[in-house]
């Protein structure tokens, strides 16, 4: 599995496991995560910690832009540009 596929799969399974909502299966890379209430504000903080562990460097506040967590595609594009 390539790095980018692994990143997407890790994010997908993490979010699916922890979401308070029953999710459409499978969770798609363009499913709106905040819009549909799949990720709460506390879970966004947890996803940030996950991203930091996955890429082995901190997420800076300046990186947090409108739409950064819109869907899995946006997360990958925003935080894993080098890797993806």
């Amino acid at each position: 599995m390539s790095d980018v596929l692994l990143i997407r799969e890790t994010l997908r399974s993490w979010i699916t496991e922890r979401s308070r909502k029953s999710l459409p299966s499978p969770l798609l890379d363009d499913t709106a995560l905040i819009e549909q209430g799949i990720l709460s504000s506390v879970q966004v903080m947890d996803v940030i910690l996950l991203i930091e562990r996955m890429r082995n460097r901190p997420v800076e506040v300046d990186e947090l832009k409108p739409g950064s967590f819109r869907d899995i595609n946006s997360i990958v594009r925003t935080f894993f540009q080098g890797e993806a």
Binding site: I34, V44, I48, L64
Partner: peptide, 15 residues
Amino acid sequence: DPGTNPRYVMQRVDP
């Protein structure tokens, strides 16, 4: 202490 507050982070990523 905004950087540690989930609501602040949420307001940044979802205006």
